[in-house]
Amino acid sequence: MKGSKASMTMNKNKGTWYLMKKNYAAYLFLLPKLVLFTTFIAIPVVWAFILSFQEYKIMGGNDWVWLANYTDVFKSEAFKKALMNTTIYTLVTVPFNVITALIAASLIHSLGRFAQSFFRAAFYLPTVASMVIIAMVWRWMYNYEFGLFNYVIGWFGFESVNWLGQSNTALWAIIIMQMLIPFGVGIILYLASMSSISESLYEAATIDGANAFQKWVKITIPMLKPSTVYLVLLSTIGSFQVFTQIILMTGGGPGYATETIVHLIYKTGFRDFEFGLAAAQSVVLFFIILVISIIQYRALRHDE
């Protein structure tokens, strides 16, 4: 029995090698991408994981500290505040952006061809623009003395607000900014998915007497569920990695009011040169995103 199992494994190995030899051209075509992936993704990820158990020394000779970096992460007040801020940011921006993308796409989908093209481009444009530029424009809009927002609320008799300078408004100012930037990717993806929904479903619903809203709720939204799952996962991962807005608009302040996990990782690594601790923070972030993604995926796909 043992002999036959060994023989099967050998045959299997022989088969794999045979297939590799037979399809060598395909593997050669895959090789450049595989080398790039290994060099720039796989090795750094594995190295970061190893680094998270070490105390980093710039000139080499890292010391093994095992779980000490993880203990520091969970004891750190700054990390707790960053995690809280990032969670609030995600909980507000992700549902808002996905829902508004769905509504915008539904409205655009009912328009004529020319109007569709126009709105598609208009909503996608901010996605192409650099977040650096967007953040700088928004910083000006939030300026206490010369900003657009205080100018506008001044018309209605409200007092100016120090949007980015107060702990109780700074994070919300960043959240509002993210909410008001159209979720271009979401709109484009929803529009593409809507085009593939069979017209016969809507015709059948019409015959059954369904109105436009009922058709949207009972047909469009369920049929877009795969896209919704993808967009929720995509924007959740993006939200947990929020960085550019923070470093350009508030630097994490005032106090720790707008500190986020990735900004904290950046500071720990490139300001304090504590790459072991930064790697531990990154691994924790990785598992947070992984767990949330699995929960979201299962929750949104459970009935399929």
Binding site: N143, Y144, E145, G165, P254
Partner: peptide
């Protein structure tokens, strides 16, 4: 002093 005093905007 203006409300912006004590903020983090060096250039401003």
């Amino acid at each position: 002093a203006p409300v912006s005093m004590g903020g983090a905007d060096v250039g401003g």
